[in-house]
Design a binder for these strands. Structure first.
Lengths: 251, 251
DNA sequence: CGCCGGATTGACTAGAGTCAAAACGCGTGG
DNA sequence: CCACGCGTTTTGACTCTAGTCAATCCGGCG
């Protein structure tokens, strides 16, 4: 049958979704689960470094990240790049494009990423048939907005050191609730270039700034990324209270 | 009758909403109009400089701006302020807070502002009974996200001159489609301090930057604000294509 | 061993912040 | 009608943060 997962498709059934087990995500009602399960038309797996969605294109799909890390970014014509936010499991990508047409930002994978695929054409089914899910979708959009507000404050008004501390504590906290670090042995999979492009700094100055954080024992650069050693220290430098989320929806 | 506007209440009936007449906004179906009209519980008028919503509070309402200008901002504990975006007629304010609880940004009026008042408790009526309006709400949230993406790119990667040109052309374009300038005699009601707090610059440096734009004849500071003289010149400096919106929803 | 993509460093430059004084425009009170 | 005060815009001088350029270092890998 078409909507039954076969063994080779590697498809994770929604009933078995590993994200649902996490404390940070809310529970689904059986009926919602049934709809989402049917709404999901497939699964996409991409390699680290791959472009998931490209600015200027129209995608017929939107996705929920099932596993892996990525980032959203925009570029100026002359090549300057600004990273807008990072995407992690449970995040929806491509919603903007689905609602409004053309994508106005790109998304790239920082690690191998798997995504649940949804058809944008069936979004209205969600709105008409499932007000609760529609509410969740709006909630998720509002959450993204809130994060962008915070980033804007950071880039606009914090010093380089504060910005770096903010960003790393932000990423650490988001990943932490998703249980992405197995006992801290896994690092945030970014290069200093990503940090620079997120904070609006040059790589050189970013490096010097990160060095200060490392010298104070707050972070450490390892194999393929950054390891947070002292989250409270980072939060203090950033003059930030951190993310406060108890339960949140996902689709 | 309770839901009938009296003459003294100065209430603008939705059927008569001046915003509906603007080409930029989509049309309402009669049935939607009826719902919104009933959803609207009042009207709020505030003076220039007033705080409409305050960070850290819980508001029982959300609003649509009917007339006037304002801005959203966040502050760090030590007083540094970052303006996140501007609000103009047709914009919804307080949605984030309504969905997620506490407000995490403040909103202040730049001119006398009137707002349509809605009860946050009745938002779920909108989601359950009016999928089309729910869709619009999500669309509006996605639009705000898109604008923030653009601002982030600007603050992070554009030079001071480019940023200033971007911001002023952004505001000009938004106001233009709302027919807010009567033949260009009305200016954007901001001080240079607002520009500075939006661009992440000091007032002094902002002044020097704006001076360059003024010297080139692109803008002019008048009575209570900024006058755009050469929108194409600004767009060129900002290396920006401008806003492209045909019709958009509003509630 | 030599190549390659990051991470580091150092020297120099340029863009943006700070401090402080002046110039302006406008409303108010004498 | 004019002086005074206040909020803003302008300017100039000086400081400092962040950018640029260029070399070096380092670990992984063919």
């Amino acid at each position: 049958m078409a909507n039954q997962a076969s063994k080779n498709s590697k498809r994770t059934p929604c009933e078995n979704c590993p994200l649902r087990r996490l404390a940070i995500f809310r529970d689904f009602a059986a009926e919602e689960l049934a709809f989402v399960s049917n709404f999901k038309t497939g699964e996409l797996a991409v390699d680290s470094g791959a472009t998931i969605l490209l600015e200027g294109t129209h995608s017929a799909h939107l996705f929920t990240v099932l596993s892996g890390w990525g980032f959203r970014y925009k570029m100026l014509d002359d090549g300057r790049r600004q990273i807008l936010n990072y995407v992690m499991p449970g995040d929806i990508v491509g919603l903007q494009g689905s609602l409004m047409g053309e994508m106005q930002h790109s998304i790239e994978a920082l690690s191998p990423v798997t995504l649940c695929v949804f058809e944008r054409d069936r979004l209205n089914q969600l709105f008409t048939g499932h007000p609760d899910l529609a509410y969740d979708l709006t909630w998720i959009a509002a959450r993204e907005e809130r994060i962008l507000d915070e980033h804007l404050l950071s880039i606009g008004r914090r010093s380089a050191l504060e910005r770096a501390a903010y960003l790393l504590s932000f990423l650490y906290q988001r990943a932490k609730v998703l249980d992405l670090f197995r006992g801290n042995r896994v690092a945030i999979p970014i290069r200093q270039q990503h940090v620079a492009d997120t904070l609006g700094l040059s790589v050189v100055h970013t490096n010097k700034t990160l060095k200060k954080l490392a010298d104070r024992g707050l972070i450490r650069w390892v194999d393929g990324g950054c390891n947070v050693r002292d989250i409270d220290g980072l939060l203090a430098i950033a003059e930030w209270k951190g993310i406060s989320e108890h339960k949140r929806p996902f689709i």
